[in-house]
Amino acid sequence: MAVPEALTAIPGLRTAAQLREPGPDVLTVLPELARLLPGGGLRRGSTVAVRGARSLVLALLAAATRNGSWAAVAALPDLGLAAAAELGVDLERVALVPNPGTELVAVLSALVDGFDLVVLGPASVSPQTARRLADRVRNRGTVLLTAGAWPGADLELKVSGRRWHGLTQDGHGHLRARDVVATSRGRGAAARSSSVGLLLPGPDGTVTGGGPRERRLVEVAG
């Protein structure tokens, strides 16, 4: 399928042939997130569904874009660019397609052909379409991250136990950090679930890991 004309002008867009050139099989993630992923990073050719926190989707882009990978984000018209930058995402390496409309599948296919990582906002696709796109992702060596469920995803990350810090008992103060538990489970090497505690975001807007005691110390220090 030809790449839509609107996408050919995006700086950094790579051809399918370039994406198939030899390169690392795993894209780097922030150290705090490495324990959630088989091999400690995002495996090229995989689909990863993230449920419960859009901020985790953005955090997964941070290290890869800072290390030179290109990412595209589709169907997230209300994406918070300031929050993404605070989480460490290099915005100069991110292309946005806020409203692909009825051409979602065609646009997504083109993005998979041209970028290292593709983020898809909440969208409903049939299992058959999901399989076709997953095959394309696998063949191109791209990573597809979905903000929500995805039929047949290789890995699912789920955020639970969300608790904000910063408000006093009478409701005054400022929201400063959010305590969460992130759990991963998938197929193959990811069949055994793994969980980590995180501040997502931490007091400075970044991701902070560690156990409950360390997280409390970070929160107080912030």
Rank of each mutant, 00 (worst) to 15 (best):
A2D: 14
A9V: 15
L13N: 02
R14W: 15
A16W: 15
A17F: 11
Q18M: 01
L19S: 10
V26A: 06
L27F: 01
R44E: 04
V50K: 06
S55P: 01
A59S: 15
A59D: 09
L60N: 03
T65A: 10
S69P: 13
S69G: 11
A72G: 09
L76S: 03
L79K: 08
L81D: 05
A83I: 03
A83R: 14
A84Y: 09
A84H: 04
L87M: 06
G88A: 05
A95N: 06
L96N: 04
V97Y: 02
T102Q: 15
L104E: 05
A110P: 03
L111A: 00
V112P: 01
V112D: 02
V119D: 08
R131D: 08
R132A: 14
R138P: 10
L144D: 03
L145I: 09
A149G: 11
L157P: 11
L157F: 00
G161M: 04
H165F: 13
T168P: 01
R176T: 13
R176M: 10
D179L: 06
V181P: 02
T183Y: 02
S184W: 06
G186D: 02
G186Y: 00
G186I: 02
A189H: 04
A190D: 07
A191Q: 04
V196A: 08
L198Y: 01
L199R: 02
L200Y: 01
L200Q: 08
G202H: 13
G205N: 13
G211S: 07
P212R: 11
R213Y: 01
E214D: 04
R215P: 04
R216E: 13
R216K: 12
R216C: 14
